[in-house]
């Protein structure tokens, strides 16, 4: 059964590439361009996994991550944070807020696809 993935990023071209990669990996993909859009998309239908950019105008990735973790309906939702900032503190902050993985931009597409697959497989197994 196809897993549902929500891609959240404010850079149109990055969204485009992530959408392509996730679809190619056989997932159902929805897209949100900012934090608020992401939260309403999740309210409409809980995804299996969220690819979440950190630096976004308005509500940023950390806030969205917190909101997801606060929502009991999303208990099984996996979160992979994407960021162009690479400092360790930020990585720790993301993980502390409940993210399952943390990927630094620019990323290897193959590695990203593999990590998403592994997270979703672990979930089912």
């Amino acid at each position: 059964m196809a897993a549902s993935v929500l891609v959240v990023d404010d850079e149109p071209n990055i969204v485009l590439s992530l959408e392509f990669l996730m679809r190619q990996a056989g997932h159902e993909v929805r897209v949100a361009r900012d934090g608020d859009a992401a939260l309403s998309a999740i309210a409409a239908q809980v995804p299996d996994l969220v690819l979440l950019d950190v630096m976004m105008p308005g509500r940023d990735g950390y806030e969205v991550c917190q909101a997801i973790r606060a929502n009991p309906a999303c208990a099984r939702t996996r979160i992979v944070m994407l960021t162009a900032r690479s400092r360790d503190v930020e990585r720790e902050k993301g993980l502390a807020l409940g993210a399952d993985d943390y990927v630094t931009k620019p990323f290897s597409t193959r590695a990203l696809v593999e990590r998403v697959r592994a997270l979703l497989a672990a979930d089912r197994g």
Binding site: E11, I14, S17, A84, K105, P106, F107, S108, T109
Partner: peptide
């Protein structure tokens, strides 16, 4: 890093 991400992807 932002444009670089798109280019690499």
């Amino acid at each position: 890093r932002t444009p670089l991400t798109s280019i690499r992807s």
